Deep mutational scan, measured.
Amino acid sequence: EIEQGFLPKGWEVRHAPNGRPFFIDHNTKTTTWEDPRLKIPAHLRG
Rank of each mutant, 00 (worst) to 15 (best):
E1F: 13
E1N: 15
E1M: 05
E1A: 08
I2S: 10
I2R: 11
I2C: 09
I2M: 13
I2D: 14
I2A: 11
E3V: 10
E3M: 12
E3G: 13
E3D: 05
E3T: 13
Q4P: 11
Q4W: 08
Q4V: 12
G5A: 13
F6R: 15
F6D: 15
L7K: 04
L7Q: 06
L7E: 06
P8T: 06
K9S: 13
K9C: 08
K9P: 09
K9L: 08
G10S: 01
G10N: 11
W11E: 07
W11L: 03
E12H: 09
E12I: 03
E12P: 00
E12M: 01
E12Y: 03
E12R: 02
V13G: 02
V13K: 13
V13W: 01
V13P: 02
R14C: 12
R14A: 10
R14N: 02
R14M: 05
R14S: 08
H15V: 10
A16L: 07
A16N: 06
P17Q: 04
P17K: 11
N18G: 13
N18A: 03
N18I: 00
N18C: 08
N18T: 08
G19H: 05
G19S: 03
R20Q: 15
R20N: 08
R20L: 09
P21S: 09
P21I: 14
P21W: 06
F22P: 02
F22W: 06
F23R: 00
F23L: 03
I24Q: 00
I24H: 05
I24E: 01
I24C: 06
I24F: 05
D25Q: 00
D25I: 02
D25W: 01
D25R: 03
H26V: 06
N27V: 06
N27H: 04
T28E: 09
K29V: 02
K29D: 15
K29Y: 00
K29E: 07
K29I: 00
T30S: 11
T31M: 09
T31W: 08
T31R: 07
T32A: 02
T32N: 00
T32M: 03
W33E: 09
W33D: 05
E34I: 11
E34Y: 08
E34M: 13
E34S: 10
E34H: 10
D35S: 03
D35R: 04
D35H: 06
D35G: 04
D35T: 01
D35N: 00
P36K: 01
P36Y: 03
R37W: 02
R37Y: 02
R37D: 00
L38C: 13
L38K: 12
L38N: 10
L38W: 12
K39G: 13
K39Q: 06
K39E: 15
K39I: 08
I40Y: 08
I40C: 07
I40G: 14
I40L: 13
I40R: 13
P41G: 06
P41M: 07
P41K: 12
A42F: 09
A42M: 10
H43K: 13
H43D: 10
H43Y: 13
L44N: 07
L44K: 10
R45T: 12
R45H: 15
R45E: 15
R45D: 15
R45A: 14
G46S: 14
